[in-house]
C-alpha cells in the first residue's frame, strides 16, 4: 500500500471576487522512501496541495490518506497533533523563529510536543553537524546566510523523525549552486532514512532530480509519473 494516497482532491477558495478553484480532481499515490517533485507555474495549486496533505486546509472534496489514516477528516486540533508527531514541514520562507538560535529552533519541535530530552539535544546537534552547521548552532537566523537558514529549516523538519516531509519551494530564495546543495541534502535524507518527501518547485531542473514528478497546471494534473 502506498504511504500517501491522494484521491480526486478538489479545493475551492471563497475569495472576495467569487470562488477560485485552486485544485481540481487531483489523484496520485506515493510509495514510502521516495521523493516526489511537484512541478508547476505560480498559481497552479502546488502550495494548496501541500497544505491539504499537511492538514492545514480541508479539501472541498476528495481524500488524503497518509499511512492509511484519513487526513481530510481530522479536526484542526487533531491535524496539529499529527503534524507535531509525523510530519516535517519546510516553508518557502524559512519561518525560523527570529529570536531563537539555530539549535533552539530545532529544539522547539520537541518542546511543542511536551519536553526536551537529552536525546533530543543529541539529535539536534547531530543534525546540525550533518548539515555542516555545528559552528552555527548558537547563531540566530539573522546571523545566518540564506542557504544556512534553509538548511536549519530542513534540519528542524527532521527533528521529529517524520514519516513524511512536505517541502515548499526550498530553493526559490537560493542561487543555483546553494539550491542544488539543499536538494541533494533532501535526497540524501530521503534515501538514507527511508523517509518520504513531497517537494514543491517551479524549477524543472530540480523536479527532474526527484524519484517521481507530478506536474500541475491550473489546479489539474497536467503530466507526471506519480500515477493514480
Amino acid at each position: 500500500m502506498p504511504l500517501l494516497e491522494v484521491t480526486q482532491l478538489t479545493k475551492h477558495y471563497q475569495g472576495g471576487s467569487g470562488r477560485v478553484t485552486a485544485l481540481e480532481d487531483v489523484s496520485f499515490a506515493l510509495e514510502g522512501g521516495r521523493l516526489l517533485g511537484v512541478l508547476g507555474p505560480s498559481g497552479s495549486g502546488k502550495t494548496t496541495l501541500l497544505s491539504l496533505i499537511a492538514g492545514l486546509l480541508r479539501p472541498s472534496s476528495g481524500e488524503v490518506r497518509l499511512g492509511g489514516s484519513a487526513i481530510h477528516l481530522r479536526s484542526a486540533r487533531e491535524a496539529a497533533a499529527f503534524r507535531r508527531e509525523h510530519v516535517g514541514l519546510v516553508f518557502q520562507d524559512h519561518h525560523l523563529v527570529p529570536y531563537l538560535s539555530a539549535l533552539e529552533n530545532l529544539l522547539l519541535v520537541p518542546h511543542l510536543s511536551g519536553h526536551v530530552r537529552d536525546a533530543d539535544r543529541r539529535h539536534a546537534s547531530h543534525l546540525l553537524a550533518e548539515f555542516g552547521l555545528e559552528h552555527r548552532a548558537r547563531h540566530t537566523p539573522a546571523e545566518l546566510s540564506g542557504g544556512e537558514r534553509q538548511r536549519v529549516a530542513i534540519a528542524r523538519a527532521l527533528m521529529n523523525s517524520p514519516e513524511i516531509m512536505l517541502v515548499d519551494e526550498p530553493t526559490s530564495n537560493l542561487d543555483t549552486e546553494r539550491g542544488q546543495q539543499v536538494l541533494e541534502l533532501l535526497r540524501d535524507q530521503v534515501h538514507r532514512g527511508a523517509m518520504t518527501c513531497v517537494m514543491v518547485t517551479h524549477d524543472p531542473r530540480m523536479a527532474a532530480q526527484a524519484d517521481q514528478t507530478l506536474q500541475l497546471m491550473d489546479g489539474r494534473v497536467a503530466a507526471g509519473d506519480a500515477g493514480a
Binding site: 499537511a54 492545514l56 486540533r77 496539529a80 497533533a81 499529527f82 503534524r83 507535531r84 508527531e85 514541514l89 516553508f91 519561518h95 523563529v97 527570529p98 522547539l108 519541535v109 511543542l112 510536543s113
Partner: peptide
C-alpha cells in the same frame, strides 16, 4: 502573525 502561523503550522496549539 506570520511567525505565530508558522509555529501553529509546526503543531503548536492556540493554548500554547
Amino acid at each position: 502573525s506570520g511567525q505565530i502561523a508558522a509555529v501553529k503550522a509546526l503543531g503548536a496549539s492556540n493554548y500554547y
